[in-house]
């Protein structure tokens, strides 16, 4: 199994303190008005006296999907799934900030960095991991609701938690935009209805659907034309054209 960094989240432990959000903001210098992670709230609008568990808080962030639509939407490959650790990465140097990837994520995990002018999102804090630290949100979580690790490594806490909860693992997936997220929730997480339909922008759709084949066809046609001309000139008319004056020339001369 290929390495896959992932989060296994026991959302029942989350008390919506937002420690993860601020930790991430500081660790990654996320600009004002934007966040790389979130806590979704599902609360009963009219709670009933005597009832329990009438609210649930669900931490999340980029889910480093197996079928990331954001990667499909990127024209340059600045956004890509890194086979080395399974994370979806953004090459800031290659990203031109076209924004195509942003609506492509059903989880709204991406935003366009207003200063750097590139797409930005959770990257599981590689600078921290290099130093032997956990991602900022995981490290700071008061109840350790977020568990991080390589789920392909059976010795990781994340993999163990997954294994121990076989059959009761949930993923927040919208049926028409299933990107196979690598964010696993222990059963009964909520809310579940918040992802939006993943959409590819019209220009990107046009690029893949008809500009790509269309332009290729045109180039093919031009190439075929050149090939036909070359074939005619150098193969068929080789004998008659020794002087370097082909029939075209000749007819012109006549005209």
């Amino acid at each position: 199994m290929k390495p896959q960094l992932a989060m296994v989240i026991d959302s029942a432990k989350c008390m919506d303190c937002k420690g993860c959000m601020v930790a991430c903001k500081v660790a990654n210098e996320v600009p004002g008005g934007h966040f790389r992670n979130w806590i979704k709230v599902k609360e009963v609008a009219e709670p009933r006296p005597g009832r329990g568990r009438q609210g649930h808080f669900q931490p999340g962030a980029c889910m480093h999907c197996d079928k990331p639509m954001c990667v499909d939407a990127c024209p340059t490959g600045a956004t890509f799934k890194d086979p080395k650790d399974g994370t979806v990465k953004i090459d800031r140097a290659l990203c031109i900030g076209c924004g195509n990837c942003i609506p492509a994520c059903p989880y709204g995990a991406r935003y366009r960095h207003p200063v750097l002018k590139v797409a930005d999102k959770c990257d599981y804090c590689p600078e921290r991991r290099e130093r032997g630290l956990l991602p900022a949100c995981v490290d700071t979580c008061p109840t350790k609701a977020r568990v991080f690790g390589d789920i392909a490594d059976p010795d990781s806490e994340a993999a163990r938690l997954l294994a121990a909860n076989q059959g009761r693992i949930a993923r927040v997936v919208r049926a028409d935009s299933d990107t196979k997220p690598n964010m696993f929730y222990l059963a009964d997480t909520a809310p579940a209805d918040w992802p939006h339909k993943a959409s590819i922008t019209p220009p990107m759709l046009a690029l893949t659907k008809w500009a790509l084949p269309g332009v290729s066809a045109l180039i093919g046609l031009a190439a075929a034309g050149v090939a036909a001309m070359a074939a005619r000139r150098f193969l068929i008319e080789r004998d008659g054209g020794g002087s370097g004056h082909g029939p075209g020339h000749g007819t012109e001369k006549e005209g």
């Binding site: 024209p75 031109i96 900030g97 076209c98 924004g99 195509n100 942003i102 366009r112 922008t201 019209p202 220009p203 990107m204 690029l207």
Partner: peptide
């Protein structure tokens, strides 16, 4: 970004 998208 729509402009950039079309530009691509």
């Amino acid at each position: 970004t729509w402009l950039v998208s079309w530009a691509i």
